[in-house]
Design a protein around this nucleic acid. Structure first.
Lengths: 264, 264
DNA sequence: CGGCATTTTGACAATCGTCAATCAGTGTGG
DNA sequence: CCACACTGATTGACGATTGTCAAAATGCCG
């Protein structure tokens, strides 16, 4: 399967062949990590920069009563702790959800990228800004969206993010999460996740079986979720012309912040 | 009053006198902005880097039904859009809450800092990482903390952040928010904010009157909120002993890694 | 004093969580 | 092939938290 890291960074900068070669070289040797293993825990000093090549991982925090809040999913192509060497200790944990392929980048490798590969450096920066945007959108959902729309919004987001790294087939993608893990991300109880999921299925929006999420009608799901992909910043800034850039990848529609109207 | 920007960055790097002089120069001319004015709106291209010197501002998003979610407060010393020039358009809005003093930094000024002031550059980076940590903590609160603890946690956070820039007197600080604005940040309705506030007061934890938040008992409030300031990264990494205490004890299933963090 | 924003209250409803079973799928060992 | 165990999904009953609506009280400012 194509290299998701390269595929992702293509959205953040106009890479050269040399850039791609370097990225390919860096990601050549990945290690396998089993499901539900901690990659790094809160309180530990951050060590290496990590790259998820295959599988699902997440950032999370635990509360005293054992409740877990997942603060973000990491999917193929995602990077973590890029510049976190500045901080003395992790303020959250990172763990795999499914089995994963992970690449560890030494600080010197990252340093080399920063010094000799300006376009890659730019793309890495772009990627951290996207991560920030994603977290902001999750926060909005938690605060102001009811459970069903919140879940629909997450599905739209994953559809778009996974589409950007070639992990979407038609209108379906692999989503290796249990309902409990979905709940930990959405701030919902397991029981409620189950019920909302059934409601979405009954409304003909999605079906989620055997770790595969199938979107029945993308446009309707996006509209229901009030999904606007702008926060994923997949329309490249340098492609913005006075004339609209052609949209890339899975139908990226949603609410237009200026007009307040929905676009197809 | 002391320069909050310098005070803040002191926490992120070991500044020299020259660094401080430069920061003083940069922040010398601030402009006044009235309360509840937008500084930049979602969908607009980011222009300049902004610095809040005095007053409260916030990042927010609006939903279609008019609901607002505040994704972060910006207090004296906070910076926004540091590197956002990479992105084509804002994915959220920024507005003042109270009247503010704001500094606009041109891209070239930021560039100069980046090229000639490595310690300031480091501190700016640190600051973006802290912002990220704060957002993550808000997300955890929204997902897994009930309203009263969530609010208490926010008060602890502001107490600490404002304390770090010299805006706290004893056990009280100015908090120029209406209850509605508090609700927009906490994801609560105005009515519920009011009731929770009363409950906290009746429990002898805080009082909030005339835009001043008074913390009756800091330790008890922190304990109630399960507040751990680690995510604000105020203990400077370079102050940490070179040898770390052997905290590599394996964490047994499901235990919170932050055990023993609370003070009575 | 009037006008306006903000806070406060009460009554009621909706969303969502908890508890406790039950059901379904999968893998293992005999 | 089946009993068994285990994880994950599903259901029902019930309760707690939080939202909505509508009104009244309070505080602030010219």
């Amino acid at each position: 399967m194509s290299n998701p890291f390269i595929a992702k960074l293509e959205h953040g900068a106009h890479l050269s062949d040399d850039d791609r070669r370097k990225l390919q070289e860096i990601t050549a040797r990945a290690r396998r990590v089993g499901p539900r293993e901690d990659l790094i825990m809160e309180g530990e000093p951050p060590d290496e920069v990590r790259l998820v090549i295959e599988g699902f991982a997440c950032r999370y925090k635990l509360l005293r009563d054992g409740a877990r809040q997942i603060c973000g999913y990491m999917v193929p192509g995602d990077i973590c702790n890029l510049h976190v060497a500045i901080l003395g200790e992790m303020d959250h944990s990172i763990a795999t959800i499914s089995a994963c392929s992970v690449v560890d980048l030494t600080p010197s490798t990252v340093e080399e990228l920063r010094e000799r590969y300006p376009r890659i450096t730019r793309a890495l920066w772009w990627s951290t800004l996207v991560d920030e945007g994603v977290m902001r959108e999750w926060l909005v959902g938690m605060g102001r969206r009811p459970a069903d729309r919140r879940m629909a919004h997450l599905f739209c987001e994953l559809f778009t993010r996974l589409g950007a790294v070639g992990r979407v087939e038609r209108d379906a993608f692999e989503l290796p999460l249990t309902q409990a893990e979905l709940g930990d991300a959405l701030g919902l109880s397991l029981v409620h996740v189950n019920r909302v999921l059934q409601a979405l299925r009954d409304d003909g929006l999605v079906s989620f079986r055997r770790r595969v999420l199938q979107i029945t009608d993308v446009g309707r799901l996006q509209s229901f979720a009030e999904f606007n992909a702008n926060y994923l910043h997949l329309t490249k800034a340098w492609d913005r012309a006075p004339l609209r850039a052609p949209r890339s990848l899975p139908n990226v529609g949603g609410l237009n912040p200026r007009s307040g109207e929905f676009e197809a």
